[in-house]
Design a protein around this nucleic acid. Structure first.
Lengths: 147, 147
DNA sequence: TATTGTTATACTCTATAACTATA
DNA sequence: TATAGTTATAGAGTATAACAATA
């Protein structure tokens, strides 16, 4: 009757998705596009090849995402200064503002969630979550290398 | 330098997705279709309307998912015994076998993850995760009712 | 009149392969 | 010859709206 730890973690993952979808609602942005903006904010102006690697997605896919974000005014394509084959994708000023706000909301959500945990449990939870990330990473890596 | 608790939770969510994608790989199944099979396994033969509500997805979407699962031999459409407008969707015997195996893998993964947490931290982690689920659910519900 | 499922239409995400322009 | 990005093609997931059959 007690739900498995795994089920509760999956529920958290699901709730995150819903929370994010809600946060983007009205902006016309999607999860994939926000992820790309997030990567751009941290990496700075980048070639589409670089973005494809950072997002772990095909270069063709980046073309589509950048197309959409260009139409909605979130990014700009500029010529690469030394390589005429390549373009540099960069955030527009308004997107920088949007991403700064999202970053702040991210920090706020972290604070909200941390406060939800009883103070005396926080250290153990930190240790436990870290152990879970490590173990899960191992599992996924093993599966990858088995390919 | 210490990643936020939130970032680690998001990383776990991401790793789950990868792990599941790997588990389905080779079966030709996708996340959405497995989710539908999972729901069917727990709910038993159901109308597409019922499935749409359980999956929180449009009825039209269910039509497509059932079409695909019917083609791959995982589900069957049978006439509803009393309502000639409706159909009952049910798992085929081979899909029942598949889902039983997946359920076992699910329990195994839960065991693997629980063992990764230091025994003295497990109770605190259980309490903490439960608190996180509750708080996140509140946030999403608030956002929903604000709509 | 309301409900069940489907057809019609459209958009996004995703991938591979072929092609163009450059390096 | 290799690399950066695009065009071509394809399939899955998702949604709304219109429609047919049935309740």
């Amino acid at each position: 009757m007690n739900p498995l730890l795994l089920d509760r973690l999956l529920q958290i993952a699901d709730l995150f998705q819903k929370d994010m979808a809600r946060a983007f609602d009205g902006t016309g942005l999607t999860t994939s596009r926000v992820h790309l903006l997030w990567v751009l904010q941290h990496a700075g102006p980048s070639t589409q090849q670089a973005l494809a690697k950072l997002c772990a997605v095909s270069p063709r896919n980046i073309t589509g995402l950048v197309d959409g974000l260009e139409r909605s005014g979130h990014v700009r394509r500029t010529p690469h200064p030394t390589d005429r084959r390549a373009v540099l994708v960069e955030l527009t000023p308004s997107a920088v503002t949007t991403m700064t706000r999202m970053q702040q909301e991210h920090v706020d959500l972290n604070e909200t969630l941390t406060s939800a945990i009883a103070p005396e449990d926080r250290q153990a939870v930190e240790r436990g979550i870290t152990a879970l990330v490590d173990r899960l990473s191992e599992l996924v890596d093993e599966a990858d290398s088995a390919t």
